[in-house]
Write a protein that binds this DNA or RNA. Structure first.
Length: 571
DNA sequence: GGCGCCACTTAGAAGGTGGGCT
DNA sequence: AGCCCACCTTCTAAGTGGCGCC
């Protein structure tokens, strides 16, 4: 019945049957991708120079060099691997004459080209002010940004094709600097209904393929040339197909809630197992549950940065301390996780876990796998047996959401005003972000903007002191004069003090919030891990406008939850 | 049981924008 | 009016996990 309510609220009706016949959609029509603007050669007065001599490049070579010129001031273009990969790929694009001539990147000078692109970007900015670009963007959005799926007009997420450029990657990526090829219509696979109008390729070109596969949700795909992986154009999070999946994800996490105690009991038992494989599985699961670690699939060496998750942890990533800072059995984690974000944590664990870890590490080199008898596939197969739909990532969703709910209960003070309640929400959100290790680089202007805010607070304090002095004066006046006028004056001074106090408090809350948030990213957990119904219920319970918690895009994504949850919702 | 392939979710950075303050 | 900063959008890389095959 929940499903029914949800579908009705989303304006999709049960009678459409599409949910029971296994297919994802009945009808899909769209316009295909917006292809990147065609390559325009540089004006002839913009020079590239080699070994001090000015020269003109062939079209392919010029396009590659252009990307380097655009990135000239980035820190990573100075990296050796980046330069090596860039130069290697550039030489592939050169004519044989160019290849014979241009043999040393150090002799290349892109400064004039870089200047030219800087000027172009300035010009673009100016154009934005005149709204020409805005209008063009709006036109593209209206024409290509939507599709029809099962009679509903749905927003497409990424309808612009990825432009060519130099691949960066995150962290120490072995492929940084390689040329990311321009995508051509001949690379594109279109997916739509047989009975729909086919998207048209640009004049004079052909799509690679047009297919009609309603078991998948993507509209367009192509194979990218750096890793050879497939990229997709899919629907916006506000779409039915994404919303339903999102809701399903949280329902699975709520199912875990019902049996998590049983599972915890089980893996604690397994710590004592005679089988090494089972012990490893149980310890890994303990980490995933307690620390919200990711599963940790194996990765191909040399294809991407060296990062790990739980199952792929190596001996070198943990340190065992029988005693540390007054605590017993401390495990010190230090490794690079997804996006090469560092995970550093010192965690006291139970003695049995500690002893097991010692056992797993016996006779191993630092670069050996900690859980040598385990991988994500084994772990997930086990989890599937414990609960329908359970996989390692469900623990992250479950623990994130349950933490938010608990923290909100704990931190919300009914007597506090709106800004204070929102601070509490942000703190609860922050607890989750810390659990999930969602970090960000501290904003470059952080110190400065913090100082500015502090100056504002000081000024406000002075103002408050002054207002209080005035109030005192008004009180004295009233005592002496005892007339209507001074009574009114006193009232207005009282109001003024209250107003300034409130302003000061607002500023102080802002400062606390900002300081605590310096290196923590709240967005990822809010968007991907926290059951939105918890937040909706909290807002309803305390009379907080939902707009204070979710912006427009987020409200669209979570429309299902906003309609579904009342203030009694329990995750 | 391992591998390759595929589809989909999750991730932080960069860039854009708009509202508040001086 | 202009500037600054916080918030928002866009971008696309980097994960997870299922499936089929050998």
């Amino acid at each position: 019945w929940l499903f029914l309510i949800c579908c009705t609220l989303l304006d999709y009706r049960w009678e459409e049957e599409r949910y029971t016949d296994g297919s994802k959609w009945r009808f899909l029509e769209h316009k295909g991708p917006v292809m990147a603007a065609p390559y325009e050669p540089l004006p002839s007065n913009v020079r590239f120079s080699y070994d001090g001599k000015s020269m003109k490049l062939s079209l392919g070579a010029e396009e590659v060099a252009t990307f380097f010129a655009k990135m000239l001031d980035h820190e990573y273009t100075t990296k050796e691997i980046f330069q090596k990969n860039f130069f290697n790929d550039w030489r592939k694009e050169m004519t044989s004459e160019e290849r014979a001539k241009i043999t040393d990147l150090k002799k290349c000078n892109f400064n004039e080209m870089a200047e030219y692109f800087k000027a172009q970007s300035e010009a673009r900015k100016a154009m934005t002010k005149e709204d020409k670009l805005v209008t063009e963007n709006e036109r593209l959005l209206q024409e290509y940004g939507f599709c029809i799926m099962d009679n509903h007009k749905e927003r497409i997420a990424n309808f612009r094709i990825e432009p060519p450029g130099l691949f960066r990657g995150r962290g120490d990526h072995p492929k940084m600097g390689m040329l990311k090829r321009r995508i051509r219509p001949e690379d594109i696979i279109i997916n739509c209904s047989k009975d729909s109008k086919h998207p048209k390729p640009p004049p004079g070109t052909k799509w690679k393929e047009v297919r009609h596969d309603n078991k998948v949700t993507w509209l367009v795909s192509w194979t990218e040339n750096i890793q050879g992986s497939i990229k997709y154009i899919m629907l916006n999070p506000s779409s039915r197909i994404k919303g339903e999946k999102d809701w399903q994800k949280y329902e699975t996490a709520r199912n875990l809630k019902k049996c998590v105690e049983r599972l915890r009991h089980q893996y604690r038992e397994d710590w004592k197992s005679k089988e090494m494989k089972i012990r490893q599985r149980a310890v890994a699961l303990y980490f995933i549950d307690k620390l919200a670690l990711r599963a940790g699939n194996e990765k191909e060496e040399g294809e991407s940065a060296d990062t790990v998750g739980c199952c792929s942890l190596r001996v070198e990533h943990i340190n065992l301390h029988a005693e540390k800072d007054g605590q017993e059995f401390v495990v010190e984690f230090d490794f690079l996780g997804k996006d090469s974000i560092r995970y550093y944590n010192k965690v006291p664990v139970e003695k049995r876990v500690f002893k097991n870890l010692q056992l797993f590490m016996e006779n191993k080199q630092p670069e050996d796998d900690l859980f040598d008898r385990l991988n994500t596939s084994i772990l997930n197969k086990h989890l599937q047996e414990l609960m329908d739909g359970l996989t390692a990532k469900v623990f992250r969703t479950y623990n994130a959401s349950i933490t938010l709910q608990q923290q909100l209960k704990e931190l919300t003070n009914p007597d506090e005003n709106l800004p204070a309640k929102i601070l509490s929400y942000n703190r609860a959100n922050r607890a989750v972000a810390i659990l999930c290790n969602h970090q960000r680089a501290a904003p470059k202007t952080f110190e400065k903007s913090m100082q500015n805010l502090q100056a504002k607070i000081d000024a406000k304090k002075d103002q408050l002191a002054e207002a209080k002095r005035d109030l005192k004066g008004a009180k004295a006046d009233l005592k002496v004069r005892r007339d209507e006028k001074s009574k009114k004056a006193l009232e207005s001074k009282k109001k003024a003090v209250e107003r300034v106090e409130e302003q000061l408090m607002k500023l102080e809350v802002q400062a606390t919030d900002r300081e605590e948030n310096k290196q923590i990213a709240l967005g990822t957990s809010k968007l991907n891990y926290l059951d939105p119904r918890i937040s909706v219920a909290w807002c309803k319970k305390w009379g907080i406008p939902i707009e204070k918690i979710y912006n427009k895009t987020q409200r669209e994504k979570f429309a299902w939850a906003i309609d579904m949850a009342d203030e009694d919702f329990e995750f």
